[in-house]
Amino acid sequence: MVHVTYVGNFLSAHGINPTYAEALAPRLASDRIKVRTASDRLHAASRLLDTIRAVLATPRRGSCLIIDLCSGPRAFPAALLTCGLAHLRRRPYILALHGGDLPTRLRTSRAQLLYMIRHAHRVVSPSAYLAHAFAGYATVEVIPNAIVVSDYPFAARAQPRPHFLYLRAFHPVYDPETALRAFAQVRAHHPEARMTMAGPDVTGLQAQCQELAASLGLSACVSFPGRLPKTAIPALGQEHDILVNSSLRDNTPVSTIEAMTMGMAIVATTVGGLPYLLRDGETALLVPPGDAESMAEAMRRLLEEPGLARRLSENARAEAERMDWSTVLPRWRELVEMAAAQAA
């Protein structure tokens, strides 16, 4: 039996968007692998204590840890402490890199970041972007974020409707205002266009977006349903034909993979991991961040250029099929079994 301690954010019960860890951890468990997670505690001190207890309880033999590493001001030092404790107790750990902003830690926290990387049994990332960013410091294995492809019905967008979807949190890093301003420009040429902006309001930015929509005369054609459960995503994909990702920083967003799987035509920015996930002119149209005019032009191209949306739609679906759990999960199971063998 392999014992895995997975240290990451497991906070969806508190109304916070589930992280990829919440999808991966239960799937890793099998008749050969036992998984313990940390932490589902909301408050920082309680989370830290829960994580320390989980690391200390990790068996000496036949075990390993998976430690999610993000760049946030709380997440980064928490991961550093966890890696240090695991190393001190000689428990092998797999370091999972997350977040489009993580490479900035090479400038601001270089020594701490390299400590975590160098003592890891393996370093993994869901994107080639982070693998490339850290190539000079470690061999990073790319294991893509996975979904159940069969849960997302595909429809080629041969003649896309002007139904646009923004599917991210309301946070400045995702720049929803630029998506709104671009949509306003599109609607000047397609008055039947509508947009849904769905996601949790983590900073109070949704109210500002609603005010912006009103000032642009869009209140009647832009809806704000808030945070939606995963089960609602396939229906959203059937109701909308074009996904708009206006991020200023990003890595490998699952919402974009879901859109690819459903065959939605995609307009996204050229930041972080997005150009590694999406190929401009082949699986999506990519535009500079913060540029509403370029975004609007790309959105209009999908509506007005014959054959473009269909080609992107079909190519994106073919790419997404390689990210099904049936392909990705065996790689994770092999990885943890190899790491645990080191502690045998």
Rank of each mutant, 00 (worst) to 15 (best):
R105P: 13
A184T: 03
L102E: 00
S215I: 06
F164C: 01
A232K: 13
P234I: 02
Q210V: 11
S150R: 11
A214N: 12
V140D: 00
A158Q: 14
D175A: 05
I147M: 04
A232I: 14
R181S: 05
Y152I: 11
S109T: 08
G136N: 12
R181H: 04
H98K: 15
D151Q: 05
R110N: 15
A135D: 10
V148C: 10
F224T: 08
A133H: 05
N145V: 06
R105Q: 14
A158Y: 07
A96R: 09
L165V: 04
A232E: 10
A214V: 06
T178V: 05
A158C: 12
K230C: 10
Q238G: 15
A220H: 13
I147T: 03
Q206D: 14
P126E: 12
L212M: 05
R122W: 02
A96I: 08
P229L: 00
V124H: 11
F164R: 01
I143D: 00
Y129S: 04
D201E: 12
P234D: 05
L228G: 02
I147L: 11
I117C: 08
G136V: 07
T231Q: 06
Q238T: 08
V123Y: 01
Y115T: 12
A184E: 02
R122T: 04
A193M: 07
H190F: 12
V149A: 12
A184P: 00
Y137V: 08
A138S: 10
A128R: 06
A138E: 02
L114C: 14
L167P: 05
R110W: 06
V202I: 11
Q112S: 15
R122S: 09
L113A: 01
Q206C: 13
V142M: 14
A207K: 15
M195P: 00
L114R: 09
A207Y: 05
P234G: 05
P172N: 10
S150H: 14
D201K: 00
L236I: 11
K230I: 08
A213G: 07
G136T: 15
A169H: 06
D151S: 09
A135L: 08
